[in-house]
């Protein structure tokens, strides 16, 4: 018997709803969010505009007029709420692995010329830079959610030995592809942008490509593993992908 986790459901405006398990960053909860995300995606309806998974919540943005036509005498909110509750309850009675999570490998060059915070982070943790790289590459990370910027994946959790706070003052410009650490999270900047994460390397891969039908390399629920490459390989890969 699988125990049903407690959650709250609340509106986010009159055309949006959120199911929220609350609590901390948790892999178990986020896996459930991913399963719920995939189940809800099967709900094919032009009344559903967006389904947005986050750390421990999932939100649906809907077209009030179109939902109301389905809802009849009930409110549109009530209709979507019921759908969410039913989908959630079916999920908890089944296995947690209905939908497979993709595995993605990402090359990262940790050369100091591309890793402006690597030395500082290593010395603050009393590690060598090689140890930081080895620890960063030793785990498979879960994409908890995508937000902040298009294609910016929040991944976790990094080993406590390399977990590090954000920089006291953010950089005005972080180059696209930069791999950073903030707390127990790790992430990659898809574009040049301001940012406060500690930068320990850079990937040559293009994380966001507007010419593609699926513009982002990474998606919610992906399992990501980093592997180290040389500066030479970095330039080779970067020049050959476009």
């Amino acid at each position: 018997m699988v125990q049903t986790a407690a959650y709250q459901i609340y509106p986010i405006g009159d055309q949006g709803i959120t199911l929220d398990y609350g609590g901390e960053m948790s892999e178990t909860v986020n896996r459930k969010i991913f399963q719920l995300f995939k189940s809800l995606q099967n709900w094919q309806s032009d009344a559903i505009l967006d389904i947005i998974p986050a750390y421990h919540s999932i939100s649906i943005i809907y077209d009030l007029i179109k939902i109301k036509k389905l809802a009849g005498e009930y409110s549109a909110y009530h209709y979507v709420e019921t759908k969410l509750r039913v989908t959630e309850s079916l999920l908890s009675d089944q296995s947690n692995e209905l939908f497979e999570e993709r595995k993605v490998e990402i090359p990262v060059c940790y050369d100091l010329s591309l890793a402006p915070d690597l030395i500082e982070l290593a010395s603050a943790q009393q590690l060598s830079t090689e140890e930081v790289i080895e620890i960063h590459c030793s785990k498979t990370y879960r994409i908890y959610m995508i937000g902040f910027l298009p294609g910016f994946a929040y991944m976790g959790s990094v080993d406590s030995r390399i977990a590090s706070p954000r920089k006291a003052s953010p950089r005005m410009n972080v180059p696209a592809g930069s791999v950073g650490i903030a707390g127990t999270q790790t992430g990659i900047y898809p574009f040049d942008s301001p940012g406060g994460w500690q930068l320990i390397g850079q990937t040559p891969l293009q994380l966001f490509d507007t010419s593609k039908e699926n513009p982002t390399l990474l998606e919610p629920g992906d399992q990501v593993r980093f592997y180290a490459i040389s500066l030479e390989e970095f330039h080779h890969l970067k020049n050959n992908q476009s």
């Binding site: 995300f37 505009l49 943005i61 995508i146 910027l149 513009p215 982002t216």
Partner: peptide, 10 residues
């Protein structure tokens, strides 16, 4: 709409 899960604003 349809791309907010990828961080793309509507």
């Amino acid at each position: 709409y349809g791309y907010q899960q990828l961080g793309i604003p509507p």
